[in-house]
Design a protein around this nucleic acid. Structure first.
Lengths: 185, 185
DNA sequence: ATTGTTGGCCAACGGCTGTTGACATCAGAG
DNA sequence: CTCTGATGTCAACAGCCGTTGGCCAACAAT
């Protein structure tokens, strides 16, 4: 079953190169030619493996937030836990830039924006509903996402000095009270 | 001195059309040809008036947040005042899309990102420093911007249903406590 | 030995882009 | 009337883009 060695390897190489480019420059500015060059193959190979630039993009948009089961954490620990997980997810593995791909692209690309809403609906909203109960979660999830995505925007995309200047721990500590108030309703 | 009538009018028409396009589609996806068509002139006129696409973009990025003098508002009213001004500035005049241009472009365009940092440094940071004092403002300004830009991101760019579903008043009320805690330090 | 499949390269097409320069029009100054 | 400068049009250039189709080498199966 694992006979097709070369095929899998180049497919993975293309996807890795594509993620890097999409993460760094967004959808429009990454070219098939550049991705192919990074992966050290011919541009037409990208077409063969993924069909089109759009489908390659779609493959690069696969995101798993890896949210823990929030019912397991005590209510008082919820805000800090969320923030720590969020920052860890963004800064933990510098080679993993799937989150960057999604957020950067979603701002100018409707396809990515739709995927973002989907991630919210299938991962964020359910996780919060499990912790807060469905009625409060519906209203709170939006406010929480707003605060967390604001952090990602200013720190990892815009790189506002006032936000990048803070150490990760300091940032978590600084935002925890605000998130706590929001979660408390 | 105000002899050059036609020139001023078409220059303004170009800028208005450019702002609409940049706001809706970002830098890369707006073409000089489309802007010219909207302004009902020849593409080469855009070049004559603004020199290049980049310079046209630069002109479209001019932003004034119109922040009020925050020393005039009582400390308890500060968070709600900031939020109301922010939402009003974004939703008040639907024809004014300069904020949308700046934020949408800043995510994929370094030129716009630099402008965003400049707006932060010259408008946001000083206004908060006036209200909070310079020592607390330095640390707080980043956290506040993170929360406010998170709102703009989720509501006006990504259009997350959970955020767009809320009425403006409801949104302000929902986020005021969080902002208050952050501002209190 | 022949056939078919797989993984790959190469060259090209058609389309769109920013940008340029030559030409047209026309009002006002000499 | 003539000249000049501003305002605008037209057509084209050169470059990059996504995408396509044909060709090639290696290798497994017949």
């Amino acid at each position: 079953m694992t006979e097709r060695r070369s095929s899998d390897r180049t497919r993975a190489a293309i996807l890795r190169a594509a993620r890097e480019r999409f993460a760094a420059h967004g959808y429009e500015r990454t070219t098939i030619r550049a991705v192919a060059a990074d992966a050290e193959i011919d541009p037409s190979m990208v077409m063969r493996y993924f069909g089109s630039k759009e489908q390659l993009f779609d493959a690069a948009l696969a995101v798993d937030l890896r949210l823990p089961d929030l019912r397991a954490v005590p209510a008082g620990e919820l805000p800090a836990t969320l923030l720590r997980h969020f920052v860890e997810r963004w800064e933990g593995d510098p080679a993993d830039d799937t989150l960057l791909v999604l957020l950067r692209s979603a701002v100018t690309n409707e396809q990515a924006a739709a995927r973002m809403r989907e991630v919210f609906a299938t991962q964020v909203a359910p996780a919060l509903a499990a912790a807060l109960g469905p009625e409060r979660a519906a209203r709170t999830a939006g406010l929480v996402s707003s605060q967390l995505l604001g952090l990602a925007l200013t720190r990892y995309l815009l790189r506002l000095p006032a936000v990048t200047a803070l150490a990760a721990d300091d940032l978590v500590a600084g935002l925890t009270p605000a998130l706590a108030v929001t979660l408390a309703g």
